[in-house]
Design a protein around this nucleic acid. Structure first.
Length: 1149
RNA sequence: GGGCGAUUAGCUCAGUUGGCCAGAGCGCCUGCUUUACACGCAGGAGGUCACAGGUUCGAGCCCUGUAUCGCCCACCA
């Protein structure tokens, strides 16, 4: 039995010692490269990564064997918020000082930030090492000498350079905007980081009293002497209640503190007359205008539209706490400011508690009821909601409460509801025209300028994959037309686009192509990218700022090159002379902020020191993780100045020149927008020679994007770290072996289907495999089915263990009594069984080939010639040729399951079940058979190597030892000491030999029929049976010629064969096609009768089906002639056979 | 609300321009410790291709609709 553990370690060491995966730019061969989607250092890899990396390794090894200079660039991602959160949670669990404590230390000036970052760094070091080790155990042929990390010095230099260039080109700006604020991690999130969740909430209907200026009676509204409670007003402010109300409907009553308007639809006949009037906000006593805005839904109680049926016609407008209200607020800025002085009133602290100190003007909140200060300030938004609703109720201002289910954005990290929150953030302007490039206008059907970042991404797309761009006749598809190439020479692997071609427009292609649409739509509706994060773990923004009082219009402000409301460029300052970008921006009316962006380089440290000496401080934010990931295909190769890092990139510019663009990006569909899009934009932008004189051509980050399936657990849930349902690939390697895991993963990778993978546990005490107990998770991963943290062994209930979920969720820890149970899954049996089969088959072949060698009959290569080929030889070589073709075709199209299935069928079904069985007895005597066998083994190992590198490499060394010289006259199989660097088989197309295939299929048919009869008559396998056959002359001739084959495969002794053979009286008969087989000495008339009758039935249905088809005139006239002819032949054959069966039946009676 | 995908044997999945009696692996049944392999060999049972219409000589495949599941996108009070 094959024991993977014995082999894998040794083989891995040999590869690493030989630096078999190290790519050098000067080595021969066309470039081929892949950059790994850098796994997050939050945790170890799970099977989803194993799938992702297996596919990349299959591609890398395949292309390496094709003779290409293949680089697979490995590395990891710092994953800012994710890692920071994970480390903080772990610190809390362990009772150590956590982020909160470090923040206090930082506030006291005790270096908390640095200390915390060190904690995260330690975590990163641990998991980075583990990830590397996992990759190696999976056999990934990465260039481990080039391993990068998104925050290492090489990548950091790229990030600072990229930021600087974008900043200089005016594509980065800072603005006060509503962001998706996570109050727990206290950072802004990108839109993509927000998960929508259905939540059971309520609609509250709250009454706001209408007020009018004292002494100016409202039209048609009578004064009332005694205003209702709740509409009491400070007598001093000159407004008084009219006694009327408007009723706003809201799901978020707590934000009413920040309302600065109420809106009605100007087309609302019943309410539009109120536009221009005012209401007084209860509690805060702010008087706000009623404005008309078309955004407001007209109420309609009977409408099927939920919104209309819930609407009251009045919308409270809270610009600082709702994105829509923000828009409305600024549409009516003038009237709002006239009434309240401010459009934006922020009523919350960063932790989403009610606060008057984060943008709530003092003169405004001072007029509020004491209730605000006494009860609300400092309360969480949830508590504030209850208190405010309670207040409205007590005051008789709560008209109604209705339950309402709606979707609310949640943080994908902390899982709490997102607060739309006003703050200063940095943005990349993705739709802004790129400076210094000519204006090419907007792309068709969009408002995306062709020379914006988003425009570049859209222009990169293959035109035939663009929706709306019809592919007409005569339209050439850029890149490769795979169909045409395959037709030209199907045996030749398709050539990937080379680096030298320097093409990009129209050359980005998605597999499967439907994902192109996701990409396209994202860019057509793209919004500016918020790149700042209020975290500590990440790349600091390389901007230094200083606020100076009363400096407005002081000196040196150059005419604004940009947005007149934005900052001004300072042309000739101390800082610009040092290469920095220097801006000045006014804050309010009295202060000016000086902003300096520092470029990376040798003088960077000095400049920063001088800036800080002059009172500048660095922006505290870090960059969105995806900013550094977006540079990955560039930064890993040393962009922009590899010469600065000779210890990491000794070859300098050559690496980038050789391998960027990469050939393909393999990833899952969830990050098409987050990552794929941004790499395309950045790689194109930063390689543009118009903007970068060092670049010799604008380049894509990759030509192909292959989107593969996702792995789900046994309950159909995505396998993910946050769910804790991930399975460590090393567990599977323990139970099944690395090759088995890889083969199985490749085998289940189809174009559409996500893979469901039920998981079992292995009891660490008894080794028993069992199905674990599941529970429904609470909290973060709420509602998900997860393994119970502890399990007991079904064999021995006293034996307990803990699960991966239990440990990773912090519920339990592994101990000696309760160790961690490894996972396994029977899904991987197919790979394990196949590896075992291959192992045994090759071992057998080598034994027999070795014996022949010792007997002095070396006779492998060179001696065999076409004249010596037997039917079985020609057949297996034909099958081999087809298999090579299939492998080339399927791997070129990223159809991994076809590749894996094709090899499985060839090795197991064709080679083992038929060819080896056929030539077994003659291997000693027939050199040609030995040569063919050695060739098939050789080629199979090469073909399987990309999927199963360990076992094939091990067997390869045995093959080299036993049969050092192999091959056939028609086929050159270049020798190689190491399979990982061996050549891919190039099989001649002429080997596909349909005649021999049909000939061998006839043998298979006869053997199958004979075996069936043997089994039915329960003939012991070892017993040889005499057989004779009646068949038409041509077929009889073939059978006679190959009777030795039939004899061996069916374990029979052929007797008479011919057109007029009689059935011996004691023989069982079988009819197959035009052949009648007689197996002598197996008299059992009853069995016989049953089988023949069954066959007769089958044939009868077949005949009637064929007859009715031919009886259909329209079939005969409309179907293609060859099909009709084929049907006729089938009918004739079936009728002949049925006649033969009837004859045999009659003979029995 | 928009888009995409899925629904085929008990389970997990193939099925490449519509043309076979719809396939594989696991599981199940029968027989084999046949000197490569029991993680195996030989044979076998098992399917209304989610449902309803339509196009066609012919539909698992194309069209329309329905149901169920999943994913992505969307600012919904």
């Amino acid at each position: 039995m094959y024991r993977p553990a014995d082999v894998e370690t040794e083989v891995l060491e040999r590869w690493l010692a030989a630096k078999a995966f190290h790519a050098r730019p000067d080595d021969p061969g066309e470039a081929y490269s892949i950059v790994i989607p850098p796994p997050n250092v939050t945790a170890a890899l799970h099977l989803g990564h194993a799938l992702n990396n297996t596919l990349q390794d299959v591609l890398t090894r395949y292309h390496r064997m094709l003779g290409r200079n293949a680089l697979w660039m490995p590395g990891t991602d710092h994953a800012g918020i994710a890692t920071q959160t994970v480390v903080d949670r772990r610190l809390q669990q362990e009772g150590q000082p956590s982020l909160k404590d470090y923040k206090q230390r930082e506030a006291r000036g005790e270096g908390g930030r640095e200390a915390f970052v060190q904690k995260v760094q330690a975590w990163k070091d641990e998991y980075e090492a583990e990830i590397s080790s996992q990759l190696k155990r999976m056999g990934c042929s990465c260039d481990y000498d080039r391993q990068r990390f998104t925050m290492d010095p090489v990548c950091a230099a790229a990030v600072r350079e990229a930021f600087f260039r974008l900043f200089k080109d005016g594509l980065i700006y800072r603005g006060k905007r509503l962001v998706n604020w996570d109050p727990v991690t206290q950072t802004a999130l990108a839109d993509d980081e927000v998960e929508m969740r259905e939540v059971d909430g309520s609609f509250w209907y709250m009454k706001y009293p209408i007020v009018e200026r004292q002494g100016v009676p409202g039209s048609g509204i009578r004064d009332r002497p005694n205003p209702e409670p709740g509409s009491r007003t400070p007598a001093s402010d000159g407004w008084r209640a009219t006694g009327e109300h408007v009723t706003v409907a809201t799901t978020r009553p707590e934000t009413m503190l920040g309302d600065t308007a109420v809106a009605v639809n100007p087309d609302d006949p019943q309410r539009k007359h109120l536009i221009g009037q005012f209401v007084r906000l209860p509690i805060v006593n702010r008087v706000v205008p009623i404005v008309g805005d078309g955004y407001v839904t007209l109420p309609d109680a009977d409408s099927s539209d939920a919104k209309a049926s819930y609407a009251s016609g009045f919308l409270k407008v809270t610009p600082a706490h709702d994105p829509n209200d923000y828009e409305i607020g600024f549409r009516h800025e003038k009237s709002i400011v006239a009434a309240t002085g401010h459009v934006l009133i922020n009523v919350m602290a960063p932790d989403a508690s009610i606060s008057v100190e984060h943008g709530w003007p003092e003169q405004d909140h001072q007029q509020a009821d004491a209730f605000l200060r006494d009860e609300l300030v400092g309360k969480s938004r949830e508590d504030a909601r209850k208190l405010i609703v309670g207040w409205f109720k007590r005051e008789g201002l709560l008209e109604e409460t209705r339950p309402y289910r709606h979707s609310v954005g949640h943080s994908y990290r902390s899982h709490v509801a997102i607060e739309p929150y006003l703050s200063d953030q940095w943005y990349v302007a993705v739709k802004k025209q790129i400076g210094r490039l000519s204006d090419e206008g907007a792309l068709a059907d969009t408002d995306v300028p062709a020379n914006s970042l988003a425009g570049l991404a859209l222009r990169a797309m293959a035109p035939d994959q663009m929706a709306g761009a019809e592919r007409g006749d005569g339209v050439t598809i850029p890149g490769r037309d795979r169909g045409a190439l395959a037709a030209e020479d199907p045996d030749k692997p398709l050539k990937p686009l080379g680096v030298g071609e320097k093409v990009w427009e129209g050359h980005l292609r998605f597999y499967p192509d439907r994902y192109a649409r996701t990409f396209q739509h994202w860019h057509e509706g793209i919004r500016d990218w918020c790149i700042s994060r209020q975290l500590w773990w990440g790349h600091r923004i390389p901007v230094w700022r200083r606020v100076d009082a009363a400096l407005v219009n002081a000196t040196g402000m150059a005419p604004g090159e940009r947005d007149p409301d934005g900052p001004m460029v300072v042309e000739d300052s101390e800082w610009t002379q040092r290469g920095c970008v220097h801006l000045e921006d006014t804050i309010g009316d009295e202060e000016v902020e000086t902003i300096v962006c520092v470029p990376p380089g040798p003088r960077e440290q000095e400049t920063v020191a001088d800036l800080e000496a002059e009172g500048f401080t660095q922006d505290p934010d870090v960059l969105d993780t995806w900013f550094s990931s977006a540079l990955w295909p560039l930064s890993t190769m040393g962009w922009p100045r590899p010469d600065d890092f000779p210890e990491f990139i000794p070859e300098g510019d050559k690496v980038l020149e050789k391998w960027n663009p990469t050939n393909v990006l393999c990833t899952a569909r969830e990050i098409i927008t987050l990552w794929v899009s941004r790499m395309v934009m950045f790689n194109l932008y930063f390689s543009d020679p118009d903007l970068d004189p060092r670049s010799d051509g604008q380049r894509l980050p990759f030509y192909d994007v292959f989107i593969h399936a996702m792995i789900q657990d046994g309950h159909g849930q995505k396998m993910s770290k946050s769910l804790g349902n991930g399975v460590d690939p090393v567990d599977i390697i323990h139970s099944h072996g690395s090759d088995a895991m890889r083969f199985t993963l490749a085998h289940m990778t189809t174009q559409t289907q996500d893979v469901r993978l039920p998981v079992d546990l292995i009891c660490p005490h008894t080794g028993e495999i069992f199905e674990p107990r599941y529970i429904t998770a609470k909290g973060g991963a709420g509602g998900a089915r997860v393994m119970a943290p502890t399990q007991q062994c079904p064999k021995d209930p006293d034996k307990q263990m803990v699960t991966f979920y239990g440990v990773s969720s912090g519920h339990v820890q592994a101990t000696d009594d309760m160790p961690l149970a490894r996972n396994t899954s029977s899904k991987f049996d197919i790979g394990r069984n196949f590896a075992n089969k291959l192992w045994n088959a090759v071992r057998f072949a080598l034994t027999r080939l070795g014996e022949a060698q010792e007997g002095g009959q070396a006779g492998t290569a060179g001696q065999a010639g076409a004249a010596d080929y037997q039917l079985a030889d020609r057949w297996i070589l034909s099958r081999l040729a087809r298999t090579v073709r299939l492998a080339n075709e399927s791997l070129s199209e990223y159809e991994f399951n076809r590749y894996a299935q094709g090899l499985y069928d060839f090795v197991w079904r064709d080679l083992c079940d038929w060819y080896i069985e056929a030539v077994k007895p003659e291997l000693g005597e027939r050199a040609t058979a030995r040569a063919v066998l050695a060739t098939c083994v050789d080629a199979s190992l090469r073909l399987l190597h990309p999927a199963m590198p360990f076992i094939t490499e091990k067997l390869w060394s045995h093959l080299n030892a036993v049969v050092p010289r192999r091959g056939l006259p028609e086929l050159d199989l270049p020798a190689s000491e190491m399979l990982a660097r061996a050549a891919w088989p190039r099989i001649k197309r002429e080997w596909i030999d349909e005649r021999s295939e049909r000939g061998f299929e006839l043998i298979q048919q006869v053997v199958g029929a004979a075996r069936q009869v043997r089994t039915e008559h329960t003939v012991p396998p070892r017993q040889v049976v005499d057989i004779s056959a009646k068949a038409p002359p041509a077929i009889a001739q073939q059978l006679l010629e190959h009777k030795a084959l039939v004899a061996v495969l069916a374990n029979v002794t052929p007797r008479e064969v011919g057109p007029r053979v009689d059935r011996p009286g004691d023989a069982a008969a079988a009819v197959t096609g035009d052949i009648e087989l007689y197996l002598h000495g197996l008299v059992d008339p009853e069995l016989e009768r049953q089988r023949l009758a069954r066959r007769a039935d089958e044939l009868a249905t077949q005949v009637s089906r064929l007859k009715s088809r031919l009886g259909n005139d329209s079939y005969v006239s409309k179907a293609p002639a060859h099909l009709v002819e084929q049907t006729r032949e089938q009918l004739a054959a079936a009728e002949r056979e049925i006649e033969a069966v009837q004859e045999q039946l009659a003979a029995l009676a």
